[in-house]
C-alpha cells in the first residue's frame, strides 16, 4: 500500500514537473513543446544576456524560432537527440541542484543568476558527459544567436553579397524538390567564371543580413 502511494506521489510529481505550469508561448510551434520553448528562452537569456559589446540578447534572437526551423530541417534521429538534450538541461537540476534556494526547481523556473550558475556547473563538471551536454546546448543556442542578423552585423561577420557566376552545373540542377524544367536558363545565360578578385570588405551585405531599409 505504501509503495503504491509513493509511486502515485512520484508519478504526480513527474507530471507536475514535466507538464504543468509552463507559460503559453507567443506562437504555435510544431516541433517544440511548451516546456521546451520555456527552457530554450530561459537558457538563451542566461547564455546571452542583454547588453555588453553585442547589444542583442538571446531573447531578442528568438531562439525557439531558430530551433523550430533547425528541427524541421532535421531527421527524426536528430530531433530525438535535441528533445533529449532539452529534457536533460531542464530537469538535470534534480541530479545536479543549483546552489541556493530552490536549486532543484526546473531550470526554466530559476532566476537568471541561478541559471547562469547551473550552466557553469554543467560547463565545468568533472563528468565528461555533463560537459558534453553543456557543449551541445551551447552549440545549438549559439548557432541560433548567430543566425540573428544584428549579431553578425555587429561583429562584422555578416556574409557579403556575392553574385554567383552561372556555370554549366546551373543548367543541370534544379532547386531541391523541383524538376529540371524549372531551371529556366540556357547556355546563353552562362556568365564568365570568377576571376579571383578579392571581395571588397566594405561591399554590400547579403540581402538576408542587411540592415532593414539598407
Amino acid at each position: 500500500m505504501l509503495t503504491a502511494i509513493l509511486c502515485a506521489l512520484a508519478l504526480g510529481y513527474a507530471v507536475l514537473r514535466v507538464a504543468i505550469g509552463y507559460p503559453d508561448p507567443r506562437r504555435h510551434y510544431h516541433r517544440l513543446g511548451r516546456g521546451e520553448v520555456a527552457l530554450i528562452s530561459s537558457a538563451a537569456e542566461a547564455m546571452y544576456p542583454a547588453g555588453g559589446p553585442i547589444p542583442s540578447s538571446g531573447l531578442d534572437a528568438d531562439l525557439p524560432d531558430y530551433l523550430e526551423r533547425l528541427m524541421t530541417a532535421s531527421r527524426l534521429q536528430t530531433r530525438i537527440l535535441l528533445h533529449l538534450l532539452f529534457f536533460l538541461v531542464e530537469h538535470g537540476t534534480l541530479l545536479f541542484p543549483t546552489p541556493g534556494r530552490g536549486g532543484m526547481r526546473r531550470f526554466s523556473s530559476q532566476d537568471i543568476e541561478q541559471r547562469v550558475a547551473a550552466l557553469d556547473g554543467w560547463a565545468e563538471s568533472t563528468l565528461f558527459v555533463r560537459r558534453l551536454v553543456f557543449t551541445s546546448l551551447r552549440a545549438v543556442l549559439t548557432m541560433g544567436y548567430f543566425a540573428y542578423p544584428p549579431v553578425v552585423r555587429r561583429l562584422g561577420l555578416a556574409p557579403l553579397a556575392i553574385e554567383s557566376p552561372i556555370c554549366e552545373a546551373d543548367l543541370l540542377y534544379p532547386r531541391i524538390g523541383e524538376k529540371p524544367e524549372s531551371i529556366g536558363m540556357t547556355a546563353a545565360d552562362l556568365t564568365p567564371p570568377s576571376e579571383g578578385i578579392p571581395l571588397p570588405q566594405d561591399g554590400p551585405l547579403h540581402p538576408g543580413f542587411a540592415e532593414p531599409g539598407a
Partner: peptide, 10 residues
C-alpha cells in the same frame, strides 16, 4: 556563458 561569453564573442 553569460556576459563573459559575450565579451569573448566580441
Amino acid at each position: 556563458s553569460g556576459m563573459a561569453l559575450k565579451n569573448r564573442l566580441a
